[in-house]
């Protein structure tokens, strides 16, 4: 939930989501990990008649608000049983692989050992101003 809320702040400031926030076919309580990848590419800043507008991407926002509604309706994610925590983390990473590739992380980085672990990801970095949470 906190990840989604943090993501929303960025979307309001004109960032755009690279992927659907509800990736993976799990209910919120079945996946303790949830990540977001979004991009600020300047296209969302529009100056018209002197007033600059931060165009929040309507589609990203709608998908995120729907995801938030689902999270609000369902129970909080259960602490994954020990045996599954590792698999859940790897799954979360694998499902985001296409989006990471699209964001410019090269295949080499993605398949480096340990790429799936949480600490492998800088909060900000890569060629574009891409934030991950």
């Amino acid at each position: 939930m906190e990840v989604l809320l943090a993501g929303r702040g960025f979307l309001h400031a004109g960032w755009r989501l690279l992927h659907h926030p509800l990736y993976g076919n799990f209910l919120p309580r079945q996946q303790p990990y949830r990540s977001l990848l979004w991009r600020f590419d300047g296209a969302s800043v529009q100056t018209r008649e002197g007033a600059t507008r931060l165009l929040a991407d309507e589609w990203s926002l709608r998908l995120l608000e729907e995801a938030l509604a689902l999270y609000q309706d369902s129970q909080a994610p259960n602490p994954a049983p020990p045996g599954l925590r590792e698999a859940c983390a790897l799954l979360d990473f694998e499902l985001l692989r296409p989006a990471l590739e699209q964001a410019g992380w090269s295949e080499a980085v993605l398949s480096a050992p340990g790429a799936g672990t949480m600490d492998a990801w800088p909060l900000k970095g890569g060629s574009l101003e891409t934030g991950t949470a």
Partner: peptide, 8 residues
């Protein structure tokens, strides 16, 4: 039904 919005 891919994950990225561009693919969708």
């Amino acid at each position: 039904e891919n994950v990225t919005l561009a693919d969708k």
